[in-house]
Design a protein around this nucleic acid. Structure first.
Length: 801
RNA sequence: GCGGAUGUGGCGGAACUGGUAGACGUGCCAGACUUAGGAUCUGGUGCCGCAAGGCGUGGGGGUUCGAUUCCCUCCAUCCGUACCA
């Protein structure tokens, strides 16, 4: 997690604060190592088509990469009687909707745009300077949280629309982001909501170019259609118009088709201690890679894990941590400055000058920043393939054998972080020829999150503003007869007032604030006041208002309205988090029921992908199941029940039905139904009083991945010396499941009215005959003959009347 | 706004390619054994109705002999994301 003082990438900043930790983020210029993930943007996008991941996750990555197809068009800067200093005579605009170019009524540029000084006319100088300063001082956070306010300023200059030859004004607006596209937006108020708001606010003209938008209150309601008022684009469908507009722009030499990505390069430096040191040293401020013979570079010891006084990262504290190059090593010492990483898919032809860092002595400073967490997490699975290899990250044979990850089960919170970086690294390693698969994770399942159930109480007057004194010690109750809240008691010496959730729901006149309470203090939505005040000694003098009275110092004072004396909490489902006091520790469950029960219960809760609140109601079911299983082996007095008799047909049928179902379920990751299958199996074997070794031994094997501890124990009790994990999985045998007859549900007009059993060799004609003759069906026919009889073998009979 | 997902008993959920809706578990009701039980066992339990029967998978419509499942439409909830031009 980043801490104050760390560097963070764009992707690690959210709403102006660090995504993890929530620290305020400040823009600061510093030299950073970056990973050029943008070079892989297109391949990372295309690769998504080849992997079996959830659509939600793929979509998140697609959005993050943010590919947009569009065009850059150059708007000529109208001479205003003086020449521009930099001979720049146009403003380039990136747009995904060139087709609407006839609707452009202004251009908006980012407040950071470098041409602002040249574009500003003398009479607008003051206004522009003021606006730019204001926009700059607004923090990232303000700019993001306040998206509704329209602001901007006119530069005084005009540009010429190259496709229409129209003159349009240039404005500065902070809704334009300097970092995206060219930092210039062509304002089309009739087709873009932001442009529309901007034009409305500043009274700029609005020209409708999409058929059917003229006369609408807000023309942006229709964004796609045929073009109108658009010269040579008139009558074309918008997509066709884009092609034609680009062609025309290219022909005139005023623009080109262009692809843009939202994805940014990733900052790879961290100004903290714990992380892999970057194997780079500096000579005359130029970075050089550390010679391979000196790798791995190990973190030096330091006295304090804090930045140095001069603001250097913690590694700056290491005494004598310097690089001493090994004498002559022809391969080493290429200046990194000279060496450029090749673009994706191309190999670098550039060679740096060999003598750059070739030194045989001297002492140099190391890079002081360390690598981020994803330096390791982006490729670790290759180490699993060959964990003991200390020569390379994994031997070629190991990689050829294991190739990629068959199934990755992970949370969707890693969608645009770890899971994107890993794909990026893997593509890079693939390009270097070091790995054999382009995509690292063939299939990915997002497991649902186990959420917490938070309990909240309501505190009166907990807002920042000082409360009205007369309200401070007042207690209200709801008169149940007319449901009007009444002010009844003024309490003496009351520290705080808390109000039961049911009272708040019915309307409590004072301002109340929600506060989390530890879930262990709540049972069935009732707060244990005694334990709460014990745990929070600052609340010993607090009053707890319930429907029928209030508690204070352990004494209940009734209101006389017959209401409850229970203090209710409000339950809410949230992420489990210490700050929400809703964390439950599985250790408690294990302590009480054992790890197998917990494991089974978690699987039994529901589908793997679904999030659900942690609720131990029903955990007894899993526990009882394991005890029933045990009782197939031992009776209540602890006598061994297993026999070596030949297994009965019914028992074999149960066993093999279970084997089949468990196999099917594991294929579709439906562990919840697997557990219920085991429950059915044990219930049936119990009813059959089935204690034959042949059956129980196979059951133990198929159960062992799901309840490993008890399975292992029973396996040994059965007299097997080796672990059950080495036992051969029992093959499914269909012959035990053969049936001679089937009980047909007989439905009349789609409603099941009767059931009749037929042997499987009964012909449909015979079935129809006896069904129609049967009492149950005759009753519904009321003498009429049926319109139609549908017989689906081994499924259903439907009689249409 | 955009994108993704999910809606079934009191609760968690099952029903895999259209074929007995509610498996399994929990909860609840009744009973057995018990001095007792957070133990065990048996029976019942979608809703309305004394019953016959009717109604039921978020709402409305459609396809079909038959729809939780397929199509259209609307609603609700959750997650992600956003001045991205």
């Amino acid at each position: 997690m980043p801490r104050p003082g760390d560097g963070a990438g764009n992707d690690e900043v959210k709403d102006g604060v660090s995504e993890r930790g929530g620290y305020p983020v400040e823009r600061k210029k510093m030299t950073q190592w970056m990973m050029r993930i943008t070079a892989y943007a297109e391949r990372l996008l295309q690769g998504l088509n080849d992997i079996d991941w959830s659509e939600a996750l793929k979509e998140m990555q697609r959005n993050w990469i943010g590919k947009s197809l569009g065009a850059t068009v150059r708007f000529g800067i109208t001479p205003r009687g003086e020449s521009l200093p930099n001979s720049t005579d146009f403003l380039a605009v990136f747009t995904t909707r060139v087709d609407t170019i006839f609707g452009v009524t202004y251009l908006a540029i980012a407040p950071e745009h470098e041409l602002i000084p040249q574009l500003t006319t003398p009479d607008q100088q003051a206004a522009v300077a003021e606006y730019v300063t204001m926009a700059r001082n607004r923090s990232e956070r303000d700019r993001m949280s306040d998206v509704k306010t329209v602001s901007g300023v006119f530069t005084g200059s005009y540009v010429t629309n190259p496709l229409t030859d129209e003159r349009v004004p240039v404005w500065i607006a902070d809704y334009v982001l300097a970092g995206y596209g060219t930092g210039v937006v062509m304002g089309v108020p009739s087709s873009d909501d932001r442009d529309y708001r901007f034009a409305q606010h500043f009274g700029l003209p609005i020209v409708c170019v999409i058929e059917g938008t003229e006369g609408l209150d807000n023309p942006c309601e229709i964004k796609y259609g045929k073009l109108v008022n658009s010269g040579f684009l008139n009558g074309l469908d918008w997509q066709e118009a884009i092609r034609k507009a680009i062609a025309r722009a290219e022909e005139l030499g005023v623009g080109t088709g262009k692809t843009n990505y939202r994805l940014r390069d990733a900052v790879f430096s961290r100004q903290r201690y714990w992380g892999e040191p970057v194997p780079v040293y500096f000579k005359d401020k130029v970075p050089y890679p550390v010679d391979e013979s000196k790798l791995p570079l190990v973190l030096p010891e330091i006295d304090k894990y804090l930045p140095t006084e001069t603001g250097e990262p913690p590694l700056g504290r290491a005494e004598g941590w310097k690089y001493h190059p090994t004498p002559p090593s022809p391969a080493s010492g290429e200046g990194l400055k000279e060496k450029s990483f090749s673009d994706a898919g191309e190999s670098s032809k550039e060679k740096s000058s060999p003598e750059a860092g070739e030194d045989s002595g001297g002492v140099y400073d190391y890079e002081l920043s360390t690598m981020p967490g994803w330096a390791g997490s982006s490729w670790y699975w290759y180490r699993y393939m060959d964990a003991d290899n200390d020569q390379e990250f994994a031997a070629r044979e190991a990689i050829d054998y294991w190739r990629d990850v068959d199934l990755y089960i992970g949370g969707s919170e890693h969608a645009t972080g770890h899971l994107l970086y890993s794909r990026f690294w893997n593509h890079f390693l693939y390009d270097l020829g070091l790995v054999v698969e382009k995509e690292p994770f063939k299939k990915l399942i997002n497991q649902g999150m186990i959420q917490g159930v938070s309990e909240k109480i309501f505190k009166v007057g907990a807002s920042e503003t000082p409360e009205d004194e007369s309200e401070k010690n007042a207690v209200y109750y709801v008169d149940s007869a007319n449901a009007i809240p009444r002010k009844m008691h003024i309490l003496e010496d009351v520290g705080e007032v808390f109000v039961s959730a049911e009272v708040v729901e019915k309307g409590y006149p004072s301002k109340v604030a929600e506060r989390h309470v530890d879930v262990s203090l709540v049972r069935d939505s009732e707060l244990d006041i005694a334990r709460f005040t014990e745990y929070r000694s600052d609340y010993t003098q607090a009053a707890f208002v319930c429907e029928g009275g209030y508690w204070k110092s352990g004494i209940f004072t009734p209101f006389g309205n017959g209401g409850s004396d229970k203090f209710r909490t409000k339950a809410e489902i949230e992420k489990m988090s210490k700050s929400k006091f809703n964390v439950v520790n599985p250790d408690d469950v294990i302590e009480r029921y054992g790890a197998d029960t917990l494991r089974l219960y978690e699987m039994f809760l529901g589908p793997l992908e679904q999030s659900k609140p942690w609720n131990t109601n029903g955990i007894d079911g899993s526990f009882k199941f394991l005890r029933k299983l045990w009782r197939l082996f031992y009776d209540e007095q602890g006598h061994w029940l297993v026999t070596d008799e030949a297994p009965p047909a019914e028992g074999l049928k149960t066993l093999h039905r279970t084997i089949r179902k468990v196999e099917e379920d594991v294929e579709r990751y439906a562990f919840n139904t697997t557990v219920s299958t085991f429950m059915i199996c044990v219930n049936e074997l119990g009813a059959l009083k089935c204690h034959q070794r042949t059956i129980l031994q196979d059951l133990v094997i198929i159960l062992s991945p799901y309840a490993p501890h008890v399975a292992e124990e029973l396996w040994h009790q059965l007299g097997n010396p080796a672990s059950v994990t080495f036992a051969a999985y029992p093959p499914f045998r269909a012959e035990y499941l053969t049936e001679e007859s089937f009980e047909y549900p007989i439905s009349i007009n789609g409603k099941v009215r009767a059931k009749i059993t037929f042997s499987l060799d009964t012909t449909p004609a015979e079935i129809e005959k006896s069904v129609l003759a049967s009492e149950g069906v005759q009753k519904w026919l009321e003498g009429k003959s049926p319109k139609k009889v549908i017989i689906v073998p081994k499924k259903i009979v439907n009689v249409v009347v």
